[in-house]
Every structure is written in C-alpha cells, then in structure tokens.
Design a protein around this nucleic acid. Structure first.
Lengths: 341, 341
DNA sequence: CACGTTGTCTGAACCGGTTTAGGCCAACCT
DNA sequence: AGGTTGGCCTAAACCGGTTCAGACAACGTG
C-alpha cells in the first residue's frame, strides 16, 4: 500500500505506447513528438506515477545518495557543532535534487577506510565529502583508487584530484593575535588542536607566524585532540606554571570554554588575569561568562558550497575549488587588557 | 573499475550451474546439495563476488537502510550533543548488518512530513527512528499510513503501533529537586524546554510534582525552545526579579550553562547566591565553573537500543518496548547551600 | 520516381539479483 | 513392478527502469 504501485509499464499501456517511449518522455529526451510527450506526462500525472529509485539505480548504476563518514571520538563530536550545521547546509542543496545523505560515524581510522570501501562496493553513494583532513591523508589515494567522486573540506597537503572547499584560518588567528598584542599582551600561549589534522596544525602555524610578525618570541603551544577535556588540561598546565601567559588562544571554542572554567576554578579573573579566545563562534560563546572573543566561521556555508561542488563534479566530471571568506574576529568580553603584563 | 564486476551469473557459469542455484547457495537456503554449496561458495569467494545491493534492492523491495529525520532549529541542534552520540550508538548495530543510515536535517515540520513521504515513495529506507516526540505527534499516524516500520524515542502520548525506547525523566528531576530541597532551597524555579516536545513537558510535570511532594508551593516555570539563547533569557528574567529563586532547575545542560553565564554576569555567585542544575550531563558540564550538577543520560545507549529494536521489528514484525535505566543525579559544584534562603 | 533524411516509435536486451514452476532421478513403500 | 516421495537442479519470469538497434512513415531533393 505504501510502495509506489504504478510503473512505467502501466503508463505505457494506458497511453498505448511502448515502455521505452514513456521513459524518453519522462526524462524529456529527444525523439518524442510534442503531442505524445504531453499525453504521456499527463497520463503519468493522472496515474500518480513516481519513478522507482531502485529500478533506476540498478539500470543507471547510480545510487542518488552522497556519503559522509565521520571518524571522530564521540566525545569530541558531541561538543562540536560543526557537523550538525554542516549537514544542515548540505541538505539544503541535496534535498531539492532528491538526493539523500548517508551518514557513517565510525570509531577509528581503520574502520573508516573499510567503510569507504563498503560504500563503494555496495554502490551505496555516488560521491562523498571528505572532512577532517589529515596530513598525507590516506583517504585521498583510496578514493581515487575506488573511483569515487569526492570534495575535500579544506585544502589537502598532498596532490589531490578532488576539488576542495577551503577557508583560510590564518587571517582569523592572525587577527586574534594582533588584537591581543594591541591590548598589551606579550606572553601569549596557544592550545592547539590535533597536529594530525590539517586545520589543527595550520591554526598552530598561523599562531606561530602571527607572534613572529608581532615581533614577539615564540609562544608556548600545547597540542590536544580538540576535546573539551584536553582543553581543560592544557589550560590548567599553562595557568599553574611560573609566569603563566596573560592570554591563551584556543584552537576551538569548546576548549576555550573549558579554559574559562579552569581560569575561574583557579581563582583567576577573565580577562583581567588571563585573556581567552576561541575559534568557530559556536552558540555557547555568547552565553558563557565572560562572553568569548572568538573567530566566526560558517559551517552551514561550507555545507552548501560542498554540496554544490560535489553535484557539479558528478555532473561535469570536474568542478572548481571554492575559497570561502576567512573568519573574522568577534570581540566579546573574554579578552582584555592584562592587569599584570 | 571500482564497481563490483563479478555477478552471480559469472559464478554460475564458472560452477556450471544455474543462476538460481547460486542464489540459493549464497543465501544458504535448502535445496542445494552440500557439495554444490561448498563449491559455489568457494568459487564465489575465489572470483571475489560481492552482492549487488542495487539488484537485491530491486528484487526484494528493500533498501537496506534506515532513516533518521531531524527537524530542529540548527541552533538548538548544534549545542545539543544528543544526536551525534545517538547516531554513534545506532551505527554500532547497523554497521555489522551492512545497513546504512540515511540522515535528513530539515528546517520545519512541514518539510519533515514531506521528507517522510519522500523516503517512503523512493523506497529509500526500510524503517525510521522517530525522535523528539511531540504531543499528539502527527508523524505516528503518517508513518502508520505509509506502512513504514518505526521505533519512537520516548513513549508517545497517543496510541502508537510502534515499539518505543524510553527513559523516565521523572526520577532524575525528582532527585534533583529533593537534593536542592535537602540543601535548604525553598524557592526553586524551572527553565523548561519546549512544551510541544514530550520530554520538555514531562520534565516540567516531573518538576511540579517533585515540588508538591516536597511540600513546597508551585515554583516558577519558564518555557523555552531548549536553545542556549532561550536559556539565557529565562535565567535573566528569573534572576532579575524581586526575590529571585535560590535555585534553578534547567531542562537541559546547554541552557544551564547559559544560566551559569548569566548568573556570573549579574554578579551572583554560584552556588552561594543561586544554585543551578542541568539535565543530560553533556561533556561541557564537567569543565564549566562551577562544574554543573546535572542528571546523566546515555544517548549512545539509546542509539544502540533503538537500532536493535528497529532491526527486531523489521525482522519479526514486532518488538518489545525497551525501558532504559533512568538518569541519576551527578552532584558537582553548581548547586549548594543557599546563603540567603 | 528513386533516394536519402529526419522524426517518431517499437521491441528487446540489459542492469543483477530473487523466486517460482516444474523436470529429473533415486530411494522408498506396498 | 508401479506409484509416491523428496532432494537437487534448471529455465524463465520478475522487480522497474534505461538504452539501443531498427522499423516505418512522411518529407524533401535531384
């Protein structure tokens, strides 16, 4: 009762033509007279015909679905609103095309590679989004070998046949550092993300560069896995040492928020005793105290751009890279003039 | 090159038997001699045969995929780690079965209903998870009409043909209120979630009941949409009135964290001037200051249970409801003895 | 008038599985 | 011996589309 009952054969019989002609008319391809076309369409409409995705899949060898495989520690995944927003953005372009999004959340990299292979050998998706790019990312040659169209979220550090959607984190980090320096900070530390992830190491490199350009000595950096817990640990280490930094630049907002908590817990005032900045401008930032100074990024724009580019790629076999506007610093209360520089 | 080239016909030819027999052997069904079976399996193995999902889909009228449609304001979605964890839990049971998860994030309820219809008429999924249950939820009759198997996340307030996976929020809320009362609180307010959502209104009802059972007069309640922003607004309204509450029970953690921020901003000490509790025990709770006293829930357990139940339902046509253990109060620093009761 | 040309349409093969009707043969029963 | 049963297997239909070779008629052209 629920499944679509009327097939192309029903339409053909009703219209007194062959299946093939109906198919041509429905996909408006040449070789059908104007009268036949409207008559067939009219009959299909009247009979309530809808295409069978499964039949179409079998004969066209396409699945009309796109894939996203997320290999993140569930803890990190939960505190980071990137993916929900990204997916919402992707959907806005997939839904109108009748495409579905197949999502896999996997625990580790081995499973991740296996998942891509399975998606391909099942013919489950026609293309994938590659996120959380890593150094020398093994997924790029894998997907190339598998012949699966893909777009990368971020610019890979190796040769890649796939279009990429990227946003330069450097200006945001640089702007943050310049702002802190302008407030009088000289001992600025960085709580970096995972060095294995490109956006982790790039933000860190941007931080180092920014300090150098400000004429300051290299600052302290602590590597983390981007998790809230790791952010808290890093903040505690930085703030409990002798002559702690007067400002800490966190590589993402969840860690920065944990940093705020640690500062409070240690009896430090923010921003008087220590300034704190984040990255991403997640919703929480506005409502913690003090509100977090951070760099605004737009994950749902990424999603839209990535979706459009992947469609382009699948349709034309090629698609240009997209550079999204760099994030700008959003100034709130968590960074200020140090009372004891 | 990527697509699976070897078909069941190749195996049949190589084995010198018919397609049908190969199919029987591969699905180990009766009617195949032991020798033939091992020979066919051996040959399929040697040839590297893998089933074509698409062909199987067409002939069995199944899609080997399950659906999840999320209709939430992106803002609320982003700050709430429920779905990432839930999905991770679901995956642990789907992946071993070779099932995929099709995810839709839609902006509103109208689109949501349309999405379900599309999923069914495309035959895109074999079953769905129904989350964020609403009062008199229109999706239940819709799915019933569409004949799509489903499990509900939470117990519906109307007659439902579907198994449900539920957890009783009442004990957690009750425990929270009793704890606050035991600390000496008498003016306890509630920042409720959306009254349209069952878990929103149930937590609120549990709150009212708990106060009554403690012999206290009805407390103040403010309805919200579960968003961080709404939580902050509610907290501000509660705390800036004459004789504000000494404790606020928030219906979820993101709002509670926003509440902490508002309290700080108003110059109130937590928990001395106002105690704050949350619900869900998201990762942030441990790392804000003071750490949030909240009720622990386990979204990935929900995911696992929901996945198993949906598989059961699809296989046997029926599946029992599952009651997950109620969340327990996790005591941290954000609630304490009121200094001015 | 014979000859392409063009436009419209049909029939059948095809995608790669599942499923059913029925054939054949050996074993068993009376 | 003849009839029944059951195990093993094949051929063909089927799921519902797409696609291609070719039939046929109308048309213009030299």
């Amino acid at each position: 009762m629920s499944e679509n009952k009327v097939t192309i054969a029903d339409v053909a019989r009703e219209a007194g033509v062959s299946k093939g002609l109906v198919s041509f008319a429905l996909n408006d391809r040449p070789g059908v007279s104007a009268e036949s076309r409207v008559r067939i369409l009219e009959i299909a409409e009247r009979l309530g015909w809808t295409p069978s995705l499964r039949a179409r899949s079998l004969s066209t060898r396409r699945s009309f679905a796109l894939g996203l495989v997320i290999a993140r520690d569930p803890e990190v995944l939960g505190s980071d609103p990137f993916f929900p927003s990204f997916i919402a953005g992707v959907e806005t372009v997939l839904a109108p095309q009748g495409l579905a999004l197949v999502l896999s959340v996997v625990p580790d990299e081995t499973t991740e590679m296996r998942t891509y292979r399975a998606l391909v050998s099942d013919g489950r998706v026609d293309g994938v989004f590659l996120s959380d790019l890593r150094h020398n990312d093994p997924r790029i040659p894998l997907l190339q070998e598998l012949g699966l169209p893909a777009v990368t979220l971020g610019r890979p550090d190796t040769k890649s046949p796939f279009p990429c959607i990227s946003v330069d984190d450097t200006p945001g980090v640089a702007e943050t550092v310049r702002y802190l320096v302008s407030l009088g900070h000289r001992r600025i530390a960085h709580v970096a993300g995972s060095p294995a992830l490109l956006h982790g190491s790039r933000r860190r490199a941007a931080f180092d560069t920014a300090l150098r350009e400000a004429g300051l000595p290299a600052g302290q950096s602590i590597e983390t896995d981007f998790s809230v817990a790791a952010g808290a640990d890093a903040a505690r280490r930085l703030l409990t040492q002798d002559s702690p930094p007067t400002a800490i630049v966190f590589a993402n907002d969840p860690m920065a928020i944990a940093g705020l908590g640690v500062a409070h817990e240690l009896g430090l005032r923010v921003p008087d005793d220590v300034s704190i900045t984040g990255f991403d401008d997640i919703d929480f930032t506005r409502y913690v105290y003090p509100a977090l100074t951070t760099v605004r990024t737009a994950p749902s724009d990424w999603g839209r751009a990535a979706g459009r580019t992947l469609l382009d790629l699948m349709e034309h076999g090629t698609a240009p890279d997209v550079d999204l506007p760099a994030g700008r610093l959003v100034i709130r209360g968590s960074a200020g003039t140090p009372v004891r520089p």
